[in-house]
């Protein structure tokens, strides 16, 4: 009994001290933004709604997410309609006015950078695409730096007292990020001209950064799974002999890729979609390191 009482008292005190610190509750739609929040607001209580093993397009507006959003001070999402199938439902059910609009505690990363592949005329017959451009911006190092700056601005807006602390975290992050960027640019230069077949446009920004050419997509149309006739046409394309690898993301089904790899003798590279997508990717830095290393290995093997 005594132990129980102590435990109870301890947890009560812990709750109180948390309250005194006014620890910020951050809800991230994707793990890359949870990781970024951890760099910029290390003291915050951060929750990621999805993992790198899950398709961020198709997430259930499940009870636990509603409960987390109810308590959030800040919600960070990729935006550009990536979360259109579930975020509005969470907002509706969580009844948390703080995270309803971008004027307050809602932050869309894609709103702060120029997205690629914006379309003026979108039609569903083209597949599940978004007029606001490709939302998977987290593989663009330059854009992530801009997003980090904007996010710091948002953190300061919400928690002015800690303004100096957030500024300090941002400058620390910026220095480390820029240093890493020079290293990544060297690796990227070596990858220039590499041709790949990939699944979805998940790595659009990575390929843009590294000048890798995605010559074909395993999906016949965005959001639609590979079909056998489409795979047959990819095999024909692969027979030209200039393709280095088939690339899929950690959450994507390997079946189509396996079939194509077997027929074409191409290697499959499973790249982490985000932080936590493989053993090496523990934060944003190691995510880039691991991804670029995996690509470099495959390109060297082709040569």
């Amino acid at each position: 009994m005594r132990i129980n009482f102590k435990l109870l008292l301890g947890s009560a005190l812990l709750t109180l001290s948390h309250g005194a610190l006014a620890q910020m509750n951050i809800f991230a739609c994707e793990p890359e933004y949870a990781a970024l929040a951890k760099e910029l607001a290390p003291d915050a209580r951060i929750y990621s709604a999805t993992t790198a093993m899950q398709d961020p397009h198709q997430v259930q507006a499940r009870p636990s997410l509603i409960a987390k959003m109810r308590q959030a001070d800040l919600v960070i999402c990729a935006g550009a309609e990536l979360e259109v199938g579930w975020l509005p439902m969470l907002q509706m059910k969580a009844a948390n006015v703080q995270v309803r609009s971008t004027d307050k505690g809602l932050f869309f990363a894609a709103e702060h950078v120029k997205t690629l592949d914006q379309m003026s005329n979108v039609d569903r017959s083209m597949g599940d695409i978004h007029s606001l451009g490709n939302p998977h911006v987290h593989f663009s190092p330059q854009r992530m730096l801009t997003i980090a700056q904007a996010l710091t601005g948002k953190l300061i807006q919400l928690d002015e007292k800690q303004s100096a602390g957030y500024q300090q975290q941002l400058s620390l992050f910026s220095v480390r990020w820029q240093l890493a960027m020079t290293k990544w640019q060297v690796k990227a230069r070596a990858l220039q001209g590499m041709k790949v077949i990939a699944y979805h446009s998940s790595f659009r920004y990575l390929f843009d950064f590294t000048n890798i050419e995605q010559v074909a997509d395993l999906e016949p149309k965005p959001g639609l799974p590979p079909t056998s006739s489409h795979l047959a046409s990819l095999l024909k394309r692969a027979d030209k002999g200039d393709i280095a690898a088939i690339i899929i993301a950690s959450y994507q089904n390997q079946r189509g890729a396996n079939w194509l790899a077997e027929k074409s003798n191409l290697p499959i590279i499973i790249l982490p979609l985000s932080v936590g997508g493989n053993e090496q990717s523990n934060d944003l830095f190691s995510l880039y390191d691991s991804t670029l290393d995996l690509l470099t290995q495959a390109y060297r093997a082709q040569k």
Binding site: T50, T51, M53, Q54, D55, H57, Q58, V59, Q60, R62, Y251, Q252, N253
Partner: peptide, 11 residues
């Protein structure tokens, strides 16, 4: 009750 491998509802 809902279940998906790895919590990934796509497949």
């Amino acid at each position: 009750y809902k279940w998906a491998p790895n919590g990934n509802y796509k497949y």
